[in-house]
Amino acid sequence: MLAATVVRPSPDDPLAGLAVGDRPAPASRPGWTTVTVRAASLNHHDLWSLRGVGLPADRMPMVLGTDAAGVTDDGREVVVHAVVGGPGARAVPADEPRSLLSERYDGTLAEQVAVPDENLVAKPAALSFAEAACLPTAWLTAYRALFVAGGATPGTRVLVQGAGGGFATATVLLGAAAGLDVTVTGRDAGRRDRALALGASAAVEPGARVPRVDLVLESVGRATWSHSLRSLRPGGTVVVVGLTTGEPEDPGLTRVFFQDLRVVGSTMGTREDLERLLHLCATSGLRAPVDSTWALADARSALARLATGDAFGKVVVVSDADEAGPAAG
């Protein structure tokens, strides 16, 4: 089968370790289902894997990709939940650490992917395969960070660091749909304008002074951490979902305890969270913006697009080449 695979770690030039070509089809195993992938979406996790971050060389070659929607052998249209293992998991050893697809098991950038039965969620008929495939990582992370870890309710004032990426875009759209007051930061004026068009209440340059917020969603780390803490009202909450620029040099613990701040970690979301997110999108008309679509054979170009940092919305890979092409959202 055709697949996009990381064959060696390449920290300085991630695409140098990528191979797009033939790979063995998934082997049958008890408690797992093979899904014919109709659409997959890219995440920065794929670029980190190509650099060898979180994916040691002894696990390579590894098919990339965490997000997908497709069809099972018995004709069910499904969305793949990318988290394998963890509490209550039945299809992997109980002592195996929780992981994402493409960390211990081949991922979704392929014609087929095998996943535990418990990782399959019914695709709502109202969503296309491409629309559904945009949701299981960035959008699911945003959903859980906002409404589960962050406890946001209508009127909650939210700051999200970094306009334009899949996570920030999802936060703006989900927040607007739920009646939240969302401010985003972004270096690029065009991205800030697009965030405003999607429903952000305000869009400012990184580090700019903002009215104190109830909740900060932090995915950047060192570059934005101090600003995140300064922007919180006393008693506010920062939800940490990632650290793309590394650990903060100064964790700001004095401010944390003097102002009674809460620091909460949140990773991805549960299968039940994904079901709720899919239902929300299907019934509300909410959709993930798509930056561009590419055929699986052009996965290298799709990943290169993601690596530029210029994509606004999701970069999607589809199985049908006729569906590929620019689709700015």
Rank of each mutant, 00 (worst) to 15 (best):
Q259I: 01
G85I: 07
N43R: 04
L127G: 06
E118V: 05
A69E: 01
C134K: 05
R51M: 14
R212T: 09
A176D: 01
E218M: 03
L286M: 03
P26V: 02
V84Q: 05
P289F: 10
A40T: 13
D298H: 03
T245N: 02
D74Q: 09
R51E: 13
G21K: 11
L280N: 01
V148G: 08
V263A: 09
V53N: 14
L274Y: 12
D291L: 04
P154S: 08
D106E: 06
L15I: 10
S266W: 10
R23W: 09
P24Q: 05
G236K: 11
V238F: 09
L109R: 00
G165A: 10
V263T: 12
N43S: 11
D250R: 15
A39F: 07
G325Q: 04
S231G: 13
R262W: 07
A178I: 08
P24A: 12
A114L: 01
D260I: 02
D260A: 15
E103K: 05
A19T: 10
V80W: 00
R209Y: 00
H45L: 15
P289W: 13
R51A: 12
P14N: 05
G325W: 03
L280S: 04
G179V: 03
L109D: 00
A39L: 10
D250L: 14
A122Y: 00
L101G: 04
D320I: 04
G85T: 07
T137P: 00
A302E: 10
E205L: 14
R233S: 13
V184W: 07
T308N: 02
Q161T: 07
T308G: 02
T156A: 12
T34N: 05
L140R: 10
G155Y: 07
G329C: 04
T185W: 08
E275T: 07
A110K: 09
A208I: 01
Y143F: 14
A189W: 06
A170Q: 13
T34F: 07
T34M: 06
G207C: 08
A114R: 13
T293I: 03
L64S: 09
P56E: 02
S128T: 15
A132T: 09
Q112E: 15
G31N: 04
G265E: 05
T36A: 15
W48V: 06
V184E: 05
V213T: 14
A197Q: 14
T153N: 00
V7D: 06
